[in-house]
Simulated scan of single mutants.
Amino acid sequence: MKLKEIPRVGSLTKEQFLRDFLGPQKPVVLTDSIRDWPAYSKWDFDYIRKVAGEKTVPLYDNRPVDHKEGFNQPHATMKMKEYLDLLQKEPTKYRIFLWNVMKEVPELQKDFSFPDFGIPLMKGLPMLFFGGRDSYTFMHYDIDLANIFHFHFAGRKECILFPQSENKYLYKIPHSLITHESIDFSDPDYNQWPGLRHATGYRTYLEHGEVLYMPEGYWHYMKYVTPGFSMSLRSVARNPLNLSKAVYNVVFMRHFDNGMRRIRGKKWIDWKNRKAIERTEKVLKTMPS
């Protein structure tokens, strides 16, 4: 893969962000932009255990998509304090995914503000994500193709991004938001997945208090190098094409996919996996050797 380092800056004015990153749709890491947040000094595992330890949280692991499971259906549940104990004690594949801060732990709202990046943020949807060492998300993009601001706390996280222009090389699963789940994007097997040699994207590592901006519809693979957690804020896609894709995904695609899982079961999953490989191989055959 051709991975460029994501630019890193201390902070940006909204004019600089709009001109240099939102407009051209390029990712950036802000290293010093939230040092004035109470969360910067308060948010660690002990604090989360104190304010949310008794909450029951949905957990996800790295198992392949199963036809019996619904869209984003959790694989297990656990009290937050028990999950944090597990996460800090030993490597675990369990992750917390899309946990709504506003709904679940109102107290945490006092620890952060909504930055003025020059675009409106969805104030009802700040989401938390947790993971143990070596746990990761499959390469995917968000259903609403939003502009995403990813605020990282505790630990270290590897982030690999691709724009939508690279779909043809990524073994994208049809009627889905993921690539083929057998690909290890941290250490890809190019003999098995030769299309990845042609994919151009970005990589960075996030530390405590750093913010990653991911442009609309960007593919992202997140791997926890050490146990850690993050919060995402999002803004609606501004590109009309991306906005129309978001509406299609929410209104039709996810319901169609769930329906086909119920009707065809494992055959539907297997068909989609085959088509992902066939479509990328077809592209490769048209390229000069």
Rank of each mutant, 00 (worst) to 15 (best):
Q73K: 12
R49W: 10
S165K: 05
A199F: 06
M78D: 05
R254W: 15
F151M: 03
S113V: 13
T226G: 10
T226V: 10
I119E: 04
R261V: 00
K267L: 14
Y94W: 11
V251N: 02
L233Y: 03
P288D: 14
L206G: 01
R274Q: 09
A76R: 07
R262P: 08
K14N: 08
Y83R: 03
V251K: 03
I178D: 03
N239Y: 07
Y169F: 13
P163W: 00
E107S: 15
A276P: 02
F112Q: 01
W219E: 08
K275I: 11
E281R: 09
Y202F: 09
S289T: 11
M127V: 14
S165N: 06
R203N: 01
K223F: 04
P174T: 01
R203M: 00
L59V: 11
L196Y: 14
R262E: 06
D184V: 12
N147C: 02
I34C: 05
R19G: 12
G53A: 00
F129G: 03
K68C: 15
V211I: 14
Y47I: 10
Q73L: 12
I178E: 03
Y47M: 02
L128V: 10
F112N: 00
L241T: 07
P106F: 13
R156L: 15
G124C: 09
R274D: 01
L30H: 06
P120K: 08
H140S: 03
Y141E: 10
P106N: 07
R197Y: 06
G155K: 05
A39I: 14
L121H: 03
P288K: 14
K93H: 09
F149L: 11
P24G: 09
N167Y: 07
K14Y: 03
L128W: 07
Q25F: 04
L22A: 08
E210K: 04
V250K: 14
L18D: 10
D46F: 05
F97L: 13
L196A: 10
K4L: 15
E216M: 06
T200S: 08
D184N: 13
L241F: 11
L196G: 04
F97N: 09
A146D: 00
V9T: 01
F151K: 07
S33G: 06
N167W: 07
K282F: 13
N191Q: 06
S113L: 11
V211N: 01
L87A: 03
K26Q: 03
M231S: 00
D142R: 08
I96H: 08
P106M: 13
D85N: 05
P64N: 07
G259C: 00
Q88N: 07
K272M: 15
V57W: 05
F185L: 12
M287A: 13
I119C: 01
G201W: 09
L206S: 01
W43L: 07
S232T: 14
L233P: 04
V236D: 05
F112C: 04
V29T: 04
F130E: 00
E5H: 01
Y190N: 00
P163G: 02
R63L: 11
Q109C: 13
D270T: 09
N242Q: 12
I143Q: 02
M102K: 12
G195S: 11
S176R: 06
P240K: 12
D46A: 04
K267D: 14
Y171A: 02
